[in-house]
């Protein structure tokens, strides 16, 4: 494992911790898209079906468990916690995420590394992760104002993707048989979705003003 991959994973972990901190400290999930969170929980459940069949490392196994548990806990909290769920911006979170689900699954049936149950679900999770942030970005754009923790949450998620691209570039030059078209192309698409957000995040950081997205 190289430093870029590790940095990426740590950014990913940080984003989840920031989100948990926001929900726990403010007892509020305003500005957070339940649909995006549901998609992420599904992404991890579909991808880590290999948890019991393929052992890579203790690090991988622990991280997989952490991602599954934390993402399902966030969904549970937003739906069931009686204080937190009152702050959910349901009327703003209207992105039709079932469309993303269906499209990702259809693509996974067509483009996969091998036509097996696990490989199809793995490809599905890669495609779904690439677009899962869309309901969140749409919600932020609709609400206009973005609170600090929510802004940082999306920032760390984007940073995680950026480090994964550096990781693939590094692996491409250091490994002899590195070809992961499915993961790399989906990863590029996923990172590109953050470009707009990053631009406004940078502006607000530079001017030291509150993050605001144009309507």
């Amino acid at each position: 494992m190289n430093i870029f991959r590790f940095a990426g994973d740590m950014m990913h972990l940080t984003s989840i911790l920031v989100l948990l901190l926001k929900i726990y400290a403010t007892k509020s999930c305003s500005g957070i898209s339940l649909k995006t969170q549901e998609l992420y929980a599904l992404v991890f459940l579909a991808r880590y079906l290999d948890l019991f069949t393929d052992f890579i490392s203790v690090y991988n196994t622990i991280m997989k468990l952490v991602f599954i548990v934390s993402s399902t806990a966030i969904v549970w909290c937003m739906k069931r916690d009686r204080v937190v769920r009152r702050s959910y911006d349901k009327q703003l979170d209207t992105f039709r995420h079932y469309f993303l689900l269906a499209a990702s699954f259809a693509l996974a049936l067509l483009v996969n590394e091998k036509f097996t149950f696990q490989e199809i679900f793995w490809a599905f999770s890669i495609y779904l992760e690439a677009v899962a942030i869309l309901p969140q970005l749409v919600l932020l754009q609709r609400s206009g104002n973005v609170d600090n923790l929510t802004g940082q949450y999306v920032f760390f998620l984007g940073a995680y993707r950026a480090f994964y691209i550096l990781n693939w570039i590094y692996r491409y030059f250091t490994e002899t048989h590195f070809s992961r078209w499915i993961a790399c192309i989906s990863g590029l698409v996923q990172t590109a979705l953050y470009a707009d957000f990053f631009y406004y995040y940078y502006i607000s950081w530079k001017n030291n003003t509150k993050l605001k997205l144009p309507a």
Binding site: D9, R47, D54, F67, E113, W122, S179, R180, A183
Partner: peptide, 10 residues
């Protein structure tokens, strides 16, 4: 045909 690569990333 080539076997799929092991998914060693998260």
């Amino acid at each position: 045909k080539e076997q799929p690569q092991r998914h060693d990333e998260l």
